[in-house]
Design a protein around this nucleic acid. Structure first.
Lengths: 338, 338
DNA sequence: GCCTGGCACTCTGTCCGCCCGAGTGCCAGC
DNA sequence: GCTGGCACTCGGGCGGACAGAGTGCCAGGC
């Protein structure tokens, strides 16, 4: 086990490196943090930390930089979450309060997170699978064409066209609409399939085909996982990434365009509490030199989606975590209100 | 006026520079293009072209590179639009045909454009202001709360909450829904305000407040210009920009995040036909070292929105223009079908 | 046993001077 | 009006020298 002082040395190294972006040496350390010991002692500690794999030297006779393992220890044991200041909290709330609809909430959240953390922000739309149905609307657009509109409790709206096997009268449509809503309104998505199972039986033979078509479209919409959308912002912050630009930034930009990858990444993160994935802990190769800080958010007690930021492993973890947590909290509130 | 050969020299310079990214000299030019004259002659022509401002030298005794003015002449007079090959056309059509809804159409279009041009693609959602109303739906979510859903002929769906000044019965709601749709369905957005003007008068005094609230929300939704959304893709292609990375790429990324700026940019482009804005021709400073190739697209004969690409001024104009035109054409078809 | 000061060593980044090659402009000649 | 020739210029690459930062290790002191 590492002694208390060695942990302090590691913490100091992480803090300095995050600030300066340059390998930090023993002398600079003792000057900037009063560790109460001499550079020579610190050197011994650093050698030990290097043996354990927490820090590394880019080349002989340069300072040390933290490894992914070093950041991990820092995040787990050495760093708290830096809370937002009251003015910041107010600013967050004010900014989010101005949103007019769900798209706007998500867009504002992305912007806010990117500004607060000065990194790339990723916000997942409130997921369908954990939501409940608020209303299902059916519109007859043509004799054999119905539009299905699904409205969720998080304010999300999905629409689908249904081609009917046979013409479907307005009366039948109204009937189906009423029956459908009385069964599924307010229910969780996962319960819907069993709730509508026997619905076609209530209709005339000639209408059953259409009813089934509508229902299967509805079920499709409910499970369709590619509808897990997300919004991204703050990519300009990638330019602050480092000196060795093109090589580092390119795979990150590619990863950010692969929403599927990001969704998977967010999905893997723990369901409750904040998750920090550092460097190679990210399964996706393009993000091996980045850290992802993510957390679930939702209306009420339950998380319905995730949000987070992507930044260089060399990031201000306490500050980033504080911002992510605060934003998630306020977005949850906004969603609960609307 | 420049002689025919000098124009050929300019064309050759543009082509070579786009290919190699390096200043092109007189000797290389005569070797790669059979101009039928010696390097010395070409040098004279180049001096003339430089006097006219079409090309420039990065430093004395280096080759020449085209200026914005040079590219302009190239695009206007010297370059055609390179048509897509039949296999490419098929690929475009197949890829777009798989789309399931409007979001998907736009998402696929962005991806496709980015891949074809290897640049950043920008696609504006079909605009509301030129569309027609397909249907207006009203849902009662609570006694004094109505959800308004607007469906357009381009498949777009907008929803808004309306807080009613007084409780509003289901019967009145159905009445309003019917009256509203009989008046506005199939009509252009711009006609809606006058069409619904006298609608409140048809209702009981107690309901008029709510009817007005619903109508004003509807009108708001129709005019709300911030609802002009767009989607962006292919930002990873920015890494192919040039050597002097961070400085060039940062303002571009910032511009791309400012959807308002991009919308303005697209809006300024000519309404019909393809528009190419080169370097400083772009009003927005951050895009001064980029060119924007844009074109309107739409279902039927009329353009309802724009799409385009953003790339370095040093781009393959004929190829890019060909891809943009082809994609716009097919997207128009897809929209017309659905 | 742990900390400390001192010392020799190593490596990087930078600055300078040099040379080479590419490219130019100009001129005289055809 | 085109061409070959020639002198000139400038940037990029190469190599050596140098300064600075940082290390590892060792012997001595608390």
């Amino acid at each position: 086990m590492l002694s208390e002082r060695r942990l302090q040395v590691l913490r100091a190294i992480v803090q300095d490196y995050v600030g300066t972006e340059e390998p930090v040496g023993s002398k600079a350390l003792t000057e900037r943090h009063n560790l109460g010991v001499s550079p020579a002692t610190v050197r011994n500690d650093m050698a030990a930390l290097e043996d354990e794999g927490f820090i590394a030297q880019p080349h002989t006779s340069a300072g040390r930089i933290p490894t992914d393992k070093g950041y991990r220890l820092f995040v787990d044991k050495l760093a708290g979450v830096k809370p937002m200041s009251p003015p910041e909290r107010r600013a967050i709330q004010n900014f989010l309060d101005g949103a007019v609809d769900l798209d706007d909430v998500v867009a504002r959240t992305v912007r806010l997170l990117a500004q607060l953390t000065r990194q790339v922000a990723v916000v997942q739309y409130p997921s369908l699978t954990r939501s409940t149905v608020r209303h299902v609307e059916l519109l007859s657009l043509a004799p054999a064409r119905v539009m299905l509109v699904l409205i969720t409790d998080t304010g999300r709206v999905e629409q689908r066209m249904v081609d009917c096997p046979a013409p479907f009268g307005e009366a039948s449509l109204a009937d189906l609409r009423a029956r459908l809503n009385s069964r599924v309104a307010g229910r969780r998505f996962s319960d819907v399939p069993t709730l509508v199972e026997d619905l076609p039986e209530a209709f005339d033979l000639e209408d059953r085909g259409t009813v089934s078509a509508v229902l299967s479209t509805l079920l499709e919409t409910l499970v369709e996982e590619n509808e897990e959308r997300l919004m991204i912002g703050g990519t300009a912050n990638l330019t602050r990434f480092g000196h060795d630009f093109p090589l580092t930034i390119r795979p990150v930009l590619e990863a950010l365009e692969e929403h599927v990858v990001l969704l998977k990444l967010l999905g893997e993160a723990g369901d409750s509490g904040m998750t920090v994935r550092i460097g190679h802990e990210n399964a996706y190769e393009g993000l091996n030199s980045t850290s992802v800080v993510s957390v679930g958010y939702g209306s009420g007690g339950e998380a319905v989606a995730k949000l987070g930021v992507v930044g260089p492993t060399r990031m201000d973890y306490p500050g980033t975590m504080g911002a992510v947590r605060a934003v998630a909290r306020y977005v949850g509130q906004i969603l609960a209100e609307s």
